[in-house]
């Protein structure tokens, strides 16, 4: 990955998101600009109503800003059509949700395969990559299980494997531990740590300080503006280029 080490992976310029409620205009995003480079581990924090969900939707290409520009790997994505956005989501974004959002009738393996189905990966390669992805999250022995046969932590790991399977530019996690007990939450955060060490770029949306503390950088949002953007953990230069991601590309 990382086609351009010096250019930011994610670049936003003056993002606005405005909703009209009757005659009133509500600004969920109020001119947000930031950049995220490859292999950063960023937490976006803020109380509810701070605009962090809206920002996450925009970063995740589920939504487009009302104003401003958003680039992923130098590609302007803020003005794309629905289907083009779907393509970007498939290629560049790996979603991890609070509620896992797995298909309940499908096996873990099939759930992980799903993104590959939508980009037309041939079935043999699809199977290989889905398996590799599950092995990466230590679920190599649970591939044939359905979500209801797995624990919460395991389900979230399946979701993470699904997010990883297309080698996305960023992994976008929305309160990934919100539905887990503390011990399992720690386990999942350790997994993110490991993925980060392997060279992945992670964006975490949370309102919990303990969770945000795992990141290297925290962007605090309030009322649709960036209140503070702080480096909490100094990382000595860049981590060595990961073998795992290279192998999978």
């Amino acid at each position: 990955m990382g086609k351009n080490g010096n250019r930011p992976m994610i670049l936003t310029e003056d993002l606005w998101k405005t909703y009209e409620m009757g005659s009133e205009k509500i600004h969920a995003l109020h001119g947000v600009s930031f950049e995220i480079r490859q292999n950063e581990y960023v937490a976006i924090m803020g109380p509810s109503g701070s605009g962090k969900s809206t920002l996450m939707n925009v970063i995740g290409c589920l939504d487009t800003p009302s104003q401003g520009k958003y680039y992923i790997n130098d590609r302007l994505v803020s003005e794309l059509s629905d289907d083009e956005l779907a393509y970007i989501r498939n290629k560049e974004i790996g979603f991890v949700f609070q509620t896992f959002n797995l298909l309940s009738r499908a096996t873990a393996l099939h759930n992980v395969e799903l993104p590959l189905i939508y980009n037309g990966t041939p079935s043999v390669e699809r199977l290989e990559r889905a398996k590799a992805s599950l092995v990466k999250v230590d679920l190599g022995d649970r591939m044939g299980h359905k979500p209801n046969e797995l624990s919460g932590g395991q389900r979230q790991r399946v979701a993470i494997a699904r997010a990883l399977v297309n080698n996305p530019s960023i992994i976008l996690a929305d309160e990934p531990t919100g539905n887990l007990d503390t011990a399992t939450g720690v386990e999942i955060m350790n997994l993110f740590e490991r993925l980060w060490e392997q060279g992945n770029t992670i964006v975490l949306v949370t309102h919990e300080h303990d969770i945000a503390a795992h990141a290297n950088r925290i962007i605090h949002l309030r009322d649709g503006r960036i209140e503070r953007d702080e480096i909490v953990r100094q990382v000595e230069a860049q981590k060595p280029q990961p073998q795992t991601t290279e192998a999978a590309t």
């Binding site: 995740g60 629905d82 289907d83 393509y87 498939n90 959002n101 797995l102 298909l103 939508y118």
Partner: peptide, 16 residues
């Protein structure tokens, strides 16, 4: 509905 949301989030297009 949620399943459809998930499918769209991970890259399903309208016609999919």
């Amino acid at each position: 509905t949620r399943e459809i949301g998930v499918r769209k989030a991970i890259g399903a297009r309208r016609h999919d």
